[in-house]
């Protein structure tokens, strides 16, 4: 077993569990970033470089949409 494969598995498992049990929405987003790091490492390990590039460029786009929705919710709550 390669040590970098173990590192990717650790990132995915710990990131997923911590995203499940954390309370704040921002902490959930940060933990999803940790999970995506492990997923990109597994893509690169098997040689799917195009999928790795696509996932790493689309990850911040999804984060931007979720942050936009969070801002909307906060505005509604303040009104």
């Amino acid at each position: 077993m390669d040590i970098l494969t173990l590192m990717a598995a650790f990132l995915i498992i710990v990131g997923g569990i911590a995203a499940l049990i954390s309370k704040s929405a921002f902490n959930k987003l940060i933990m999803l970033g940790v999970l995506t790091a492990g997923a990109v490492m597994l893509f690169v390990k098997d040689g799917f470089l195009d999928a790795a590039i696509a996932v790493s460029l689309l990850m911040p786009v999804g984060t931007l949409f979720i942050l936009f929705l969070l801002g909307k919710k906060k505005e509604v709550k303040h009104d």
């Binding site: 921002f26 987003l29 940060i30 970033g33 790091a37 990109v40 790795a52 590039i53 790493s56 460029l57 990850m59 911040p60 984060t63 931007l64 942050l67």
Partner: peptide
């Protein structure tokens, strides 16, 4: 691409 994506995510948060 991974590094710029992670940096952009931190920037947005």
């Amino acid at each position: 691409a991974y590094f710029v994506g992670a940096t952009l995510e931190s920037n947005a948060i």
